[in-house]
Design a protein around this nucleic acid. Structure first.
Length: 493
RNA sequence: GCCCCCAUCGUCUAGUGGCCCAGGACGGAGCCCUCUCAAGGCUCAAACAGGGGUUCGAGUCCCCUUGGGGGCACCA
């Protein structure tokens, strides 16, 4: 396979979300797979929509996901600059070429005129488009008016008749009537290029071989293709990725809906996912499979597997609804795939966040017994935080085992106390056999006996495996908690 | 309104004319395992949007309808 040059070209206008992350992922995979380059280009030609910090968030997001780029605004490269706001003169030069070759024209129409035309078209139930007022102004006259300081933009001179055929890798040929196309603006009156000009020019100059972008670009795809043709450039391979739909499948996620997700511990924004306890590995695995598949039985992928197995041909052109439930599943899968030291490192900040002061050694003992119980890293403190607490809060009613009376449970608890007290230390090997014997001796169900012990030691009905938990807490604390529980049960009415 | 794209279980999908009375995964139901919760194992329910063609044969090709999505800015 020939080395591909692929670009991820986000605009710094908001938070990086799942859709752009997936585009970046596919870009990365294809570049790495072919031994080519993954290029980061910031499309910030619209200063009005520019959001402070958005570019940094993009870089952070890509780093977190492990999608390292080869050329970009922070890394440099032979094809820079990689920020479109720094390429203004380049676009102007190419716009001029287009005008001189008759593929574009200067337009002096005012907003008022344009507005009037549009309103009239709406009134007549016609398609709203540029009326062509300045289309045939000679270059000489246009230059004169420009020298006189007249406000102007550059528009593409779209053919009025015939059809334009474009080729998308996933959809094949798309044929559109040129009459349905507009004379789109390429350069604004402030001299800055619009996406329609900037992207084709950059893609050509940066020698991009494959353009992977969202399907929202499909309507303007013919324009972009026409621009390449007007310059006489070879077009890149075009791949329009499907969009992500909200979980219901009904439309794209609105800003409001996106922020509402946070209440459920979900988010479509990459920056949120980390603190919600999701693994970058899980994000990668999950989004890779929304619009791409490998075969009908492999679903667990690490980034390197994907580099090897990815293929443009298996991309799916239909829109996909975001399924957070499956995301949780993948997150659990990847948590279970982590080594204990790695898991320990990753859950550490979540304990700190909750106000615990976990020491590394103890946390590393805890990690293996909660590993298969975690859906997100964020679950860890809730599951095991009590192991760092001096005292647990016990609800005495919970000390009474199912199908026993208070007196019976009280007796059981005292028996448990006696058995454990005699052990030199408490762990899985030393404590389980005698406890099983006790179960036999007293004639209750294991669940009843262990249930009482669980509540006494952990203060909760649900916990990691009992014996491992007691080992970590230590005999001294276990015994004292049981003694507290005995007192509590004795006086409970 | 106009233009464009898409269409298999609730969701993500496999399927490129016979291997499909449609396979996998998540989720759901049930069972097993079991000290709770998980994890794991097994089983079950669950789909080719509709109608026309083409063909010996259509989920797979073509057309229409319907549904869904996207776009119609001096935004990207």
């Amino acid at each position: 396979m020939k080395p591909a040059r692929v670009r991820f070209a986000p605009s710094p206008t908001g938070h990086m979300h799942l859709g752009s992350a997936r585009t970046a992922l596919y870009d990365y995979l294809f570049a790495r797979q072919t031994g080519g380059q993954f290029i980061l280009r910031i499309e910030d030609t619209d200063q009005k929509r520019y959001v402070e910090g958005a570019e940094q968030e993009l870089l952070d997001g890509l780093h977190w996901l492990g999608l390292e780029w080869d050329e970009g605004p922070d890394k440099g490269g032979e094809y820079g600059p990689y920020r479109q706001s720094e390429r203004k003169e380049i676009y102007q030069r190419y716009a001029r070429k287009l005008v001189e070759s008759g593929h574009a024209f200067y337009c002096f129409c005012t907003h008022e005129h344009l507005q009037k035309v549009r309103e009239e078209q709406i009134r007549n139930k016609e398609t709203t488009k540029y009326d062509g007022t300045c289309r045939d102004i000679s270059l000489e006259e246009a230059d004169r008016r420009i020298r006189n300081g007249e406000n102007h933009v550059v528009r593409f001179k779209t053919p009025k008749t015939g059809t334009t055929t474009v080729h998308d890798l996933l959809r094949g040929e798309i044929v559109v009537e040129n009459s349905s196309l507009d004379d789109s603006i390429l350069v604004k009156s402030d001299g800055l290029a619009l996406y329609h000009l900037a992207a084709p020019v950059d893609d050509h100059l940066m020698e991009i071989t494959h353009v992977l972008r969202g399907s929202e670009w499909l309507p303007t795809f013919p324009l972009h293709s026409l621009i390449h043709k007007a310059f006489g450039w070879q077009e890149p391979v075009w791949v329009h990725l499907s969009v992500f739909l909200k979980p219901s499948g009904k439309g794209k996620m609105s800003k409001r809906e996106a922020s509402d997700l946070a209440k459920d511990g979900k988010s479509i924004f990459i920056k949120d996912l980390r603190e919600l306890g999701y693994l970058p590995e899980a994000v990668i695995n999950w989004i890779a499979l929304m619009g791409w598949s490998y075969d009908d039985h492999t679903e667990f992928f690490l980034l390197d597997d994907l580099v090897e197995k990815f293929s443009l041909e298996k991309l799916n052109p239909s829109p996909a609804a975001i399924n957070f439930t499956k995301f949780d599943y993948f997150n659990g899968l990847h948590i279970r795939n982590l080594s204990i030291p790695d898991l320990t490192d990753r859950i550490h900040p979540f304990f700190v966040e909750k106000g615990y002061k976990p020491d590394r050694e103890k946390l590393e003992q805890i990690a293996p017994i909660i590993q298969e119980r975690l859906q997100t890293l964020d679950d860890a403190p809730e599951l095991a935080g009590f192991m760092f607490e001096d005292d647990v809060v016990i609800n005495p009613a919970e000390l009474i085992a199912k199908n026993t009376t208070q007196a019976e449970s009280f007796t059981i608890l005292k028996e448990i106390h006696q058995v454990l007290l005699q052990l030199p230390q408490i762990n899985h090997e030393t404590a389980e056999p005698p406890m099983r014997e006790l179960v036999e001796k007293l004639g209750y169900k294991p669940g009843q006996i262990f249930g009482i012990l669980r509540v006494a030691v952990t203060g909760r009905l649900v916990s990691p495996p009992l014996f491992e938990t007691m080992e970590i807490i230590g005999k001294e604390k276990v015994i004292s908690r049981i003694e507290d529980a005995i007192k509590m049960l004795e006086s409970y009415t």
